[in-house]
Amino acid sequence: MEFLRLVRIVLSSFFGVRKRASHEADFANVNIVLLPFVAVFMAACIGAIIFGMVHLVAQSTSTMQGF
């Protein structure tokens, strides 16, 4: 349950959709030591998803003739 809370904190900070009251409430109840590890893991996951999507699009358009 705490891991999901950390993931929610990290994702909301990535996208900037956080209210101040919920931000302060989450940081009162979370393990700060694990937060950087979850943030790096989530950044790597988002980067891998973006890389994969670009690779799929680039691969599908390279086989099309005439464009």
Score class of each variant (00 low, 15 high):
Gly66His: 01
Ile9Gly: 01
Ala58Phe: 01
Gly47Val: 02
Gln59Tyr: 08
Ala43Gln: 07
Phe51Ala: 13
Ser62Ile: 04
Glu2Met: 10
Ile9His: 02
Ser22Gln: 13
Phe14Val: 12
Val40Pro: 00
Val30Ala: 05
Gly47Pro: 02
Val7Tyr: 00
Val57Lys: 14
Phe51Arg: 09
Thr63Gln: 12
Ala21Leu: 11
Glu24Trp: 05
Gly47Ser: 05
Lys19Pro: 01
Pro36Gln: 10
His55Glu: 14
Met1Lys: 09
Ser12Asn: 14
Val54Met: 13
Ile32Phe: 04
Arg8Phe: 01
Leu35Asn: 00
Gln65Cys: 06
Ser12Met: 11
Arg18Phe: 04
Val17Trp: 15
Ser60Met: 07
Gln59Pro: 10
Ser12Gln: 14
Ser13Gly: 08
Leu6Val: 03
Arg5Gln: 14
Pro36Asp: 02
Ala58Pro: 02
Arg20His: 14
Arg20Gln: 13
Arg8Val: 01
Asn31Lys: 07
Arg5Ser: 09
Met64Tyr: 01
Gly66Val: 01
Phe37Val: 08
Gly52Cys: 05
Ala43Arg: 15
Ser22Tyr: 05
His23Pro: 02
Leu35Thr: 03
Val54Cys: 09
Val54Lys: 15
Phe27Cys: 10
Asn29Phe: 03
Met64His: 09
Asp26Gln: 08
Phe37Tyr: 10
Leu35Phe: 02
Asn31Tyr: 06
Leu4His: 13
Phe51Gln: 08
Ala43Asn: 07
Phe15Glu: 15
Thr63Leu: 09
Gly66Pro: 02
Ser22Val: 15
Val33Pro: 02
Gly52Thr: 00
Met42Gln: 08
Ala44His: 06
Asn31Gln: 10
Gly16Trp: 07
Ser62Pro: 08
Ser60Leu: 07
Ile32Trp: 04
Gln65Pro: 00
Pro36His: 04
Ile49Pro: 03
Phe37Leu: 07
Gly66Phe: 01
Gly47Thr: 09
Phe3Thr: 04
Cys45Leu: 13
Arg18Met: 14
Gly16Lys: 09
Phe14Gly: 05
Ser62Arg: 12
Asp26Arg: 03
Thr61Val: 15
Met53Cys: 11
Ser12Tyr: 04
Val57Met: 13
Ser13Gln: 12
Ala39Pro: 00
Asp26Met: 05
Phe15Gly: 08
Val38Met: 06
Asn31Leu: 10
Ile50Lys: 14
Gly52Lys: 04
Phe15Ala: 13
Val30Lys: 02
Ala21Asn: 09
Val57Asn: 12
Phe41Met: 14
His23Thr: 05
Phe51Ser: 10
Leu35Pro: 03
Cys45Asp: 08
Phe67Gly: 10
Val57Arg: 13
Leu34Glu: 12
Asn29Ser: 11
Met42Lys: 01
Met42Asp: 01
Asn31Arg: 10
Cys45Gly: 03
Val57Gly: 05
Ser13Phe: 00
